[in-house]
């Protein structure tokens, strides 16, 4: 599922919801894969923390949730006028857990559903980094994980795009500048110029270009993660507005 990047499977519909409800099986399948790629990790981590499930039960529930999403037209019950797609998905996952808790015999590993390829080992490693802080509630945690997923997938898009365009130096400069964990060792433009044997003006131009492309990748990815144009516009503004700190 990690490999599913929307650039490789472009959606022809403007709205992911319309694509999910499409009569074209291929279009529908691509849309569901896109949703699964974007949301499985936030859902899995949410189930692990919110309901204190062990890894195996959370994996089973996540598998079942996305299998139902794909096979049983889960999204047919979604009304975009009532809330955001990701809130709907989180609520559905919670309901699935509660339903299965009540009906204990249905909480079975694997189940009858087809298997969705999800990299739970990576998700578990990430969980170790992202423990629920005391300041967060479960909703905030889920929102933050969705944002992390959005950026991770947008970076994948950028990498694919630059790989094809042969702009690997642009990518390397952008990643070196932005993906540095330790803010104290954040490189200056001059350091980047020396490191990549570029002129400082080249660094400025490369970063500017990569920033523009990354922004577009984020917006494209966000469009794939939202149900309607209205939700996309609102989410994009909320995302961009949050830079005003």
């Amino acid at each position: 599922m990690e490999e599913v990047v929307a650039d490789k499977f472009p959606l022809t519909r403007h709205s992911i919801l319309a694509a999910v409800q499409s009569d074209d099986p291929a279009e529908k399948s691509r849309a569901l894969e896109t949703i699964t790629a974007a949301y499985w990790k936030p859902i899995y981590k949410h189930l692990r923390l919110r309901w204190e499930l062990n890894s195996a039960d959370a994996q089973d529930l996540t598998q079942e949730f996305f299998a139902r999403l794909i096979e049983k037209d889960f999204l047919a019950g979604y009304d975009s006028g009532k809330g955001r797609l990701r809130t709907f998905l989180r609520t559905c996952a919670d309901r699935l857990f509660l339903k299965q808790s009540r009906d204990a015999h249905r909480l079975k590993r694997g189940g009858d559903n087809s298997h969705v390829e999800l990299d739970f080992e990576t998700a578990e490693r990430e969980l170790a980094h992202t423990a629920l802080s005391s300041a967060d509630n479960f909703e905030q945690y889920f929102e933050r994980e969705c944002l992390r997923s959005l950026f991770a997938l947008a970076l994948e898009r950028l990498r694919s795009k630059y790989d094809v365009a042969g702009k690997l130096v642009y990518l390397a400069v952008f990643e070196r500048y932005n993906l540095t964990e330790d803010q104290d060792s954040h490189p200056t433009y001059a350091q980047l110029a020396a490191e990549f044997h570029l002129s400082p003006s080249d660094v400025t131009n490369y970063l500017s270009s990569a920033r523009r492309d990354f922004r577009q990748c984020v917006l494209d990815q966000l469009r794939d993660m939202t149900a309607t144009e209205e939700e996309f516009q609102a989410e994009a503004r909320a995302l961009l507005g949050a830079t005003a700190k």
Binding site: A152, N178, L179, F214, R215, L240
Partner: peptide
């Protein structure tokens, strides 16, 4: 797919509003 820390997420987020 590399895991992104909260600091990296904030840094990437700051990139978005930056005018080109």
């Amino acid at each position: 797919m590399k895991w992104l820390s909260d600091q990296v997420v904030d840094q990437l987020r700051a990139n978005l509003g930056f005018p080109d």
